[in-house]
């Protein structure tokens, strides 16, 4: 009797243990499955872009795309029409993208870096506490708002300034888009640079002050050189943003695929062309539609490349002063 009783208790306990074990296993599986979504997303992006891009390269030779200087994707008016394939050289789009990103960085780098330096080195905590969120607001504003502002306010101003000095500027221009994008990028540079500057040990500043250096000398000759890798990282991240930015350029940069470095002309970018190719009527197998995926793949490689390098640099930097 006694032994029987013991056995049943034992059994129950073992049973309970097994069910908790099962439960734990189930929960863990759900957790792992959730984590896989992020991986699946990446795989999905890479596969879908590659797959469609691959089909595109079946129609248009890879090197014609990568090194072609002419971009004019024609639409086939009837599906049985031949010889309407158009030109799919991505170089004009790339130069347009780079031109606008360059203008944006010319605006954002000094503004972002000087802001970061002032906030990190000069500003009183009180000032810092309200200026920093204000600057970060710039990054929180939807880009469609910047696009609208660039097209409606900035472009006309640039245009009238141009005509003021007898200079014809088109209503859509790399300048308007680049300037406004530059403003958008300021917080990307200032926030990360601010962190990076703050990570420079106080001991280095003390050493410099102790030598009789002024604060500006300390910043330019000691703090910034020490923070250079981190700052480079923040700039690369900003460039990656600029290249991938869509709405500002769609609304303010134009559609003209010209191989031009004139910032006062309308230029087009990779993102603009993706939008143009994929909005409106499309038939799915045309080179025109597939081209969008090829451009997107190129875009992904560019931005991810920049991003990986940037993260690596920042990471190494943080380890150095950790």
């Amino acid at each position: 009797m006694n032994s029987h009783f013991d056995a049943s208790v034992d059994l129950n306990l073992r049973h309970a243990k097994r069910s908790t074990q099962l439960k734990e296993l189930a929960i863990k599986s759900v957790l792992i499955a959730s984590s896989l979504v992020a991986i699946l997303t990446t795989i999905g992006i890479v596969l879908s872009l590659s797959f469609e891009a691959f089909r595109f390269f079946g129609k248009i030779p890879f090197f014609d795309f990568l090194f072609g200087l002419d971009w004019s994707p024609q639409t086939a008016i009837r599906s049985d029409q031949v010889g309407s394939s158009g030109a799919f050289g991505v170089v004009p789009l790339l130069t347009g993208t780079m031109l606008i990103s360059f203008i944006a960085m010319v605006v954002a780098t000094p503004l972002g870096l000087y802001s970061a330096v002032y906030l990190a080195e000069y500003a009183k905590p009180k000032t810092r506490n309200w200026v920093k969120p204000m600057l970060e607001l710039l990054a929180g504003i939807p880009t469609v708002v910047y696009g609208f502002f660039a097209a409606l306010v900035v472009a006309p101003i640039i245009r009238s300034m141009g005509s003021g000095v007898g200079f014809e500027i088109s209503s859509e221009s790399a300048m308007a888009a680049g300037l406004v994008m530059g403003i958008m990028l300021i917080p990307f540079i200032s926030s990360l640079s601010d962190d990076v500057i703050n990570a420079v040990p106080q001991a280095l500043r003390d050493a410099s002050y102790g030598m009789g250096a002024t604060q500006a000398e300390t910043i330019t000759k000691v703090v910034l050189p020490a923070a250079t890798p981190g700052i480079m990282g923040s700039l690369l991240l900003a460039i990656s943003r600029a290249i991938g930015e869509t709405m500002i350029v769609v609304m303010a940069a134009g559609l003209a695929a010209k191989l031009s470095l004139n910032p006062f002309e309308a230029v087009t970018t990779m993102t603009v062309q993706i939008v143009t190719l994929l909005t409106g009527d499309q038939e799915f197998d045309s080179a025109k539609t597939l081209a969008a995926f090829a451009i997107a793949l190129y875009l992904l490689v560019l931005t991810l490349g920049l991003n990986i390098i940037a993260l690596k640099i920042v990471d190494n930097y943080k380890k150095k002063y950790a």
């Binding site: 001991a203 003390d206 050493a207 410099s208 102790g210 009789g212």
Partner: peptide
């Protein structure tokens, strides 16, 4: 001028702090 003062009176700190140069 503190710049002059600190040029006349140098300082060495507890933890060696050479610049990363």
């Amino acid at each position: 001028d503190v710049v002059a003062l600190r040029a006349r009176i140098g300082m060495v700190f507890q933890k060696a702090n050479p610049f990363p140069k």
